[in-house]
Nucleic acid binder design. Structure first.
Lengths: 228, 228
DNA sequence: GTTATATTGAGAAAAGAATCACAATCGCTC
DNA sequence: GAGCGATTGTGATTCTTTTCTCAATATAAC
């Protein structure tokens, strides 16, 4: 697989392609054209072809793409076949909800263990994943090759825990805290899930639409008045 | 406030600005320059000034921006002062976790009610929000001006429920299901929270880093061999 | 007051991303 | 097996976003 520098925009679209291809496969569709895929995803055919071409040639002229083969290529590009191992830090509400409901293995990740300071949850094993004491974290990281930490601690603890993780060999954090972890010069890969950012963006679009509708109504009212 | 067409990229940065400004305000910082803000967020000063200039002139030459005033401007741009009302559909694990932990009011939203088909949760009021039967949903939507629906139903039900919502006056959906809701020609505003997409993107970056490290190590090994 | 320093806002330039257009070529039909 | 219709991959073009640059101007010091 080529590893040229690929733009973030392309990378953000890859999981959507994967999801759609899985769906098509489940529906028994075995081949698809960039045109057809574009229609289903709201993207242009050329964008899709351009995206794929960053990683190789997966299609056939006059035919399109083989759904199953393309799906596997994208899965591989995303590292789903590498068996990444993860730990989860902070078994509070969101951490617990992830452990109970998010299927890490479906996406190629193995959740090896969770950690918390609360003795009430330490020793339990939600969904088969053991919850250990934070005291054991460093030993665990030393003894296991862990690729990713899922950060679900309260925001007060976020910075300190993130630093601890980075200092002990973790180089990627899936950050669910509402805190900006991105530090200048830090080599750590941080992927944020900021619910509030998402909701606020939605708020912007709603506000924009309401303003447009109001402006439209005002124009109508003026033109009605003009007629009288 | 101007409502010119603003790019998505800008809009996605606004919540980050807001968060950082709130933090600065809490730390007693009352003024800040675009240079300083850029350093803290990993953005260039000119990008920050350009972003703000989409909405007006909030700074003062030679001085910078007033943290509190800027924060309020951005909050207003995002519609936080409009009292948007929301309903939540699907009080399963993720729905319940949001009700219990996500502070809608902190972001200017009011969660008016939740809906579910399960009689076991109907009638309860997690965090003070009443859970009603899905049978009551349409009446509720008719009787209340609801701006946003939070969609946390199982993925099998996602499409049908989304359609029901759109057909009954909801024009914005905060989508937590792992399903592509974006329909061609639909005027509904959809904001997706796809955990798996986020994790897979992270996986890409991790895989990329590992490949780079391996390539680097291979280069080193070759040059060592050359020396012998 | 006057001057020095800091910093914005905005137009111009550069960089980056999306779209277009078409040669190459594959599968399918007759 | 020849010709047709479909569809890719890619280089060229267009559009968008980011960065650069600098005149304008506010504060702060003296």
């Amino acid at each position: 697989m080529k590893r040229i520098k690929v733009s973030n925009n392309v990378i953000r679209r890859l999981p959507r392609y994967l999801r759609k291809l899985d769906e098509l496969k489940a529906c028994g569709v075995s081949r698809i054209s960039s045109f057809n895929l574009g229609t289903q995803l709201g993207l242009t055919p050329s964008q899709i072809r351009q995206d794929f071409s960053c990683f190789g040639e997966f299609g056939q002229q006059g035919y399109g793409y083989n759904v199953s083969a393309l799906r596997d290529e994208i899965a591989s590009i995303l590292g789903m076949d590498r068996g990444f191992k993860a730990v989860l830090i902070g078994v509070g509400n969101i951490g617990r909800a992830l452990m109970d409901n998010f299927c890490f293995s479906e996406w190629g990740f193995e959740l090896a263990a969770a950690f918390d300071i609360d003795p009430a949850v330490v020793g339990t094993s939600p969904n088969g994943v053991p919850v250990r004491s934070m005291d054991e974290l460093l030993d665990f990281l030393r003894g296991n090759r862990i690729d990713v930490a899922v950060l679900t601690v309260p925001k007060e603890a976020a910075i300190a825990v993130a630093k601890l993780l980075c200092d002990n060999g973790i180089n990627a954090i899936w950050n669910f805290t509402n805190v900006e972890l991105t530090e200048p010069n830090s080599p750590t890969i941080v992927e944020n899930v900021h619910f509030s950012d998402s909701l606020l963006s939605l708020g912007y679009y709603v506000a924009e639409r309401y303003d447009e509708e109001a402006a439209h109504a005002a124009r109508l009212a003026r033109s009605e008045k003009g007629k009288d």
